[in-house]
């Protein structure tokens, strides 16, 4: 039975900094999880990280090299199929993403246009995958704020704390969720 595990950037960075990313991903594969990330998250951990490394390489070459090495490892994990990058269907889930942006901008008293794509795309991806398989979708993140942002969009939340990160098993009732923040 295919189980989706949507992994946030925070988890990828956490494990990679410990030299344990590949082990983590292979372990999840062994446990029959398909590890997925939305495109916005792939951009964060690859393109944005590369840009940051470029920015600092004159003043901190060793740090820049470490970041580029991390980018290479994550890119290799994608190339090897250990992480699948999934495009969120904006046409179908734009309403969900708008609602997530509104919700987050209220928390931060900031413009919803300032909300970065990663959060709404992650939430939309969870719903998109549930629509596809109609089974629990798992989410791994170290970001409590993101877990709270997910809550209004899901009916039941079961928290399973695994070591240092929270793994949520989500049963979704999609129709109910989209209506909540209108």
């Amino acid at each position: 039975m295919r189980r989706y595990l949507v992994v946030d950037s925070s988890v990828l960075i956490f494990y990679d900094r410990r030299g344990a990313l590949e082990d983590f991903l292979r372990q999840k594969k062994k446990e029959n999880y398909t590890v997925v990330i939305p495109k916005a998250i792939a951009l964060e951990v690859v393109d944005e990280a590369k840009e940051f490394a470029e920015e600092i390489k004159q003043v901190a070459p060793a740090a820049a090299n470490r970041i580029l090495a991390s980018v290479e490892r994550i890119s290799a994990a994608v190339a090897q199929g250990l992480i699948q990058v999934v495009t969120v269907n904006y046409g179908k889930y734009s309403k969900v993403m708008d609602n997530v942006r509104k919700h987050l901008s209220r928390l931060d008293a900031a413009s919803e246009y300032a909300v970065k794509k990663g959060d709404p795309e992650l939430v939309a991806l969870v719903i998109q995958l549930y629509d596809e398989v109609k089974e629990k979708v798992f989410v791994a993140t170290l970001d409590k704020g993101l877990l709270k942002a997910l809550k209004p969009f899901i009916k039941d939340v079961e928290y399973e704390i695994m070591k240092t990160w929270a793994l949520i098993a989500i049963n979704l009732d999609v129709t109910l969720k989209i209506g909540i923040l209108d």
Partner: peptide, 14 residues
């Protein structure tokens, strides 16, 4: 969220 935090500081998420 971490993304909001990063944006408010003007730094990347990474």
């Amino acid at each position: 969220t971490f993304r909001q935090a990063a944006a408010s500081l003007g730094i990347t998420y990474f």
